[in-house]
Design a binder for these strands. Structure first.
Lengths: 293, 293
DNA sequence: TCAAACCTATAGGCTTAACTTATGGATCTT
DNA sequence: AAGATCCATAAGTTAAGCCTATAGGTTTGA
């Protein structure tokens, strides 16, 4: 059985004849005759009485008609369902982002995307660690990700979004040189609150301290990122956070200082090479445009 | 879109890969790959993420899956519906019969047919007149008919079932020579109760009387065949009826006599040339077998 | 009653597409 | 690191679908 054949049968009934049905499809009349014959052969029973000039459904044809119409409706609904996704009027966009990037810049991007495409559900996945971002993209669980450059995998492509600087976030009352950058070496005696090893921020910090020739003194190591700023405010120690997060902490009373040399990271949008879904493509374009402003 | 492609997509999801799906269909793996690609081209969007060794549904693919399964279910139900008719487990058989043949032999045939095929609905159509039987068959309104031979149309074929004799049915008390046939000429003075001109019985009677050289004296002419026997019993006149009907009247008190020469008609099953529906074919075989007994 | 119009079926030829095997590229596993 | 597994691509063959032209039959109108 074939959707084409089904369509022909329904048209013959609706149009009242082979010739009119052929004109309506459109297809040549012999082609339609042959297709119907083939279907009847396959089903093992005639669907139409051929009566010279008129045709009439056989009982088998009548039994066939209702499922046939349903069949065509379903085909249309399948097409519509896919078209809705393609047209961004439905569907889901799976995004993975490093935890430090969720608040900034992801929330704004998702907000803008949702305003543009209210029908698309966005799912934000939290990676287990830095490398998980790439894993999730490679395995197709997520379509786009926010991560750190460089990404060195041929299957993944990146678009640079912005550069972030990590700032020192210190307990209230800490004295720092105002207007100037704080040498990293001055962090030598500061107990640090960090995320566990394996996370991207932790590696960045460790690398920077190592480059400055000092050893990190870890005060608190926690998975719970939302606890970092309160810990700092409570005087548990200092931390190194991306600038947007640092500025939020500063507003709450923490002392924030730029470091010298600066610890920077390049934030990129990561995607699999090849075609993206329309939703993912729209998000990518939106993200690139947003950082341009 | 094509049912084959839809089937492929569903199989890929259910089997968890192109190769397994290809083995399950069965079809070669490249053929399946190509078919899915073609479908994706037609829909304008990918249904699967290809991830080297694994595949994963895209959002569009997920949207497609449910209608796709429904599509396959409908196709199966269309096949089943037709198969049910073909297998005589459903459907309808449209029969047309001359009114004088409905009671005998049609009711017995239909009874036997219904016992064999309880799922098949039988519809008995009453023709306007004798030629209507053939019209209904030619136009496909009915598939088989009971009528009189000869049927002289190339589009219609006949199977001889039985020969019927028309008997004189006379009011109670009428004196007829017992044990011998009644000469038709003796009907000269008998007022007759008949159906209107145009009916097959009426023509048969008229012809017979004309052949005997006597004019028919019409007492009552009525469409209401069920009134004929009561009219005879009430003494309104005599009639000429097929033997089965005549014997029934005799049981109610009418006087019945065979005529000389006999008025006979050949009862045939009429059908369109070409293939019949399974129900019609079964009925035909049943009818032919029944008269053989 | 005959011819014209109309409708479906068949035939022949062509084009397209669907399948096959063989092979390449990539990934996962041992 | 090598083999196994999986999907994509290539090339060639076969089959199916569609077209035009035409035949056979029926209905309609003069």
């Amino acid at each position: 059985m074939d959707l084409r054949q089904v369509e022909y049968v329904v048209q013959i009934v609706d149009q009242g004849g082979f010739t009119k049905a052929a004109a309506a499809v459109p297809v040549s009349q012999p082609a339609l005759s042959q297709a119907v014959r083939a279907l009847e052969r396959e089903l093992g029973i005639d669907l139409f009485h051929r009566l010279g000039r008129k045709v009439r459904l056989t009982p088998a044809g009548e039994a066939f008609l209702a499922p046939a119409r349903q069949l065509l409706r379903d085909a249309q609904s399948a097409r519509s369902a896919v078209a809705a996704v393609a047209g961004l009027t439905a569907g889901r966009l799976d995004i993975v982002a490093l935890p430090t990037l969720v608040v900034e810049p992801l929330v704004d991007l998702v907000g803008a995307f949702r305003r543009q495409h209210p029908q698309v559900t966005v799912r934000i996945t939290e990676p287990e660690d830095a490398s998980a971002v790439l894993d999730l993209l490679r395995t197709g669980v997520c379509e786009v990700g926010l991560g750190e450059a460089p990404v060195d995998e041929p299957a993944l492509a990146t678009d640079h979004l912005l550069d972030q600087e990590l700032l020192a976030v210190l307990p209230p009352g800490t004295v720092v040189p105002s207007g100037r950058r704080l040498p990293i070496a001055r962090l030598a005696g500061v107990p640090l609150i960090t995320t566990p090893t394996g996370t991207s921020t932790r590696r960045l910090v460790s690398d920077a301290l190592a480059a400055a020739g000092i050893a990190a003194e870890i005060a608190v190591e926690s998975d719970h990122r939302e606890a970092i700023v309160p810990l700092v405010l409570a005087g548990a120690g200092g931390s190194l956070l991306p600038e947007p997060l640092a500025r939020r902490a500063e507003a709450q009373g923490a002392v924030v200082a730029r470091l010298s040399p600066a610890i920077r990271r390049s934030i990129v949008l990561v995607r699999r090479t090849g075609t993206l879904s329309p939703a993912a493509q729209a998000f990518r374009e939106l993200a690139i445009a947003a950082v341009g402003r």
